[in-house]
């Protein structure tokens, strides 16, 4: 385990090694579709030759992303028997991007939006994979390199990687979602938060609302908005202050649930964007809430990241946005701004 910084890591980044790597440029990557297709072919052969040791593993597939323009579609799967009929439903599959493995499912050949995720199933994301699902009433996102086991209704286990949960409202039923990890248990109390697990530690960050972190021996800690907690493998617990926006949350916006804007007011879109990014919406005079409720949007932002969507939508309105103040999404009148 890495515990001490190595002084050699502080070598200046402009050394010869750095120049050499920069000069060589990026390594060419196989096309993602090619990657997926070849993997399917090789996995079929591997499945036929490997001794599965009792594990009748499942269904492997890629799901075309709902956000088509950004999505990397996968179109392959290999079929094996699914979970026993009648298993308790723990969650619902919503969408995926990149390499994602779901196993086992309720016996269907392919996972699609709305597929049941039964007790005993798991979702695993590859290095560039993202998955959206709902567990109880909570919308959850899995980031790259994650493994989530759905153990029983309301209870999931994050073995590794990162999960983001958003109940949509602080009034969601308490205890609707419990996330077990090797370092402790995180109970959702109506909020937006993320949990990360790696071999060295678990970290919990709360964007809004609160969560309860429980460890063995009956120890529990409540974490509120703007707070975080890190539990290391040696049992050390440290509290942190975490901003509800910024790099810590950037991966969450990489794959968002689709937000239909057609026929909805600008204010709804801006509220969605602020929630996605953790920013606070600030209306600069003379802009009022009523001004933002009036414009009705049309079209679609499918395939756009939240940042791209914001730029695209705002270009069609009489308003400008400004994010130069950390943590704030400022909206002002284009006419007013032009006059300044």
């Amino acid at each position: 385990m890495d515990t001490q910084p190595d002084p050699r890591a502080d070598e200046p980044p402009t050394d010869d090694l750095a120049r050499l790597i920069r000069r060589a440029g990026r390594r060419p990557q196989p096309d993602p579709e090619m990657h997926a297709a070849v993997r399917a072919a090789v996995e079929r052969e591997w499945s036929a030759h490997a001794s599965h040791g009792g594990r009748r593993g499942a269904m492997v597939l890629g799901v075309a992303a709902a956000l088509a323009a950004l999505a990397i579609g996968l179109s392959w799967y290999s079929l094996h028997p699914g979970a026993p009929a009648g298993s308790a439903e723990v969650g619902t599959f919503v969408a995926a991007r990149g390499p994602v493995h779901v196993a086992p499912t309720d016996g269907h050949e392919m996972v699609v939006a709305g597929s049941r995720l039964n007790a005993g199933s798991s979702i695993e994301t590859g290095p560039a994979g993202y998955a959206l699902l709902t567990v109880a009433s909570v919308a959850a996102r899995l980031g790259p390199g994650s493994l989530l086991k759905l153990n029983r209704p309301g209870h999931v286990e994050l073995v590794r990687g990162r999960i983001y949960a958003d109940s949509g409202s602080p009034s969601a039923p308490p205890d609707a979602l419990v996330i077990d990890t090797a370092f402790g248990q995180v109970t959702h109390l109506g909020t937006q938060f993320q949990v990360r697990v790696d071999p060295e530690a678990m970290s919990v960050s709360v964007r809004d609302g609160k969560v309860l972190v429980s460890q063995g021996g009956g120890r529990s800690i409540t974490i509120d908005r703007g707070q975080g907690l890190r539990v290391s493998s040696d049992g050390e617990v440290s509290r942190l202050n975490v901003a509800p926006y910024g790099a810590n949350w950037a991966w969450v916006s990489e794959f968002s649930p689709n937000f239909p804007i057609d026929g909805r007011p600008l204010s709804a879109f801006l509220s969605w964007y602020a929630r996605e990014t953790g920013l606070t919406l600030v209306l600069r005079r003379p802009v009022t809430q009523a001004d933002l409720d009036r414009p009705t949007l049309s079209g679609s932002i499918t395939g756009l990241s939240p940042a791209q969507a914001l730029a695209a939508v705002m270009a069609t309105t009489q308003f400008e946005y400004d994010m130069t103040v950390p943590g704030e999404l400022r909206i002002e009148s284009r006419a007013t701004r032009g006059a300044n």
Partner: peptide, 23 residues
Amino acid sequence: TLIRGDAAAFRNFFDDYFPRLFR
């Protein structure tokens, strides 16, 4: 692990080695 049929190990193996062999 691959011979035992561990699906997760296979995916990690493939995602790691395929791009390198491709190049």
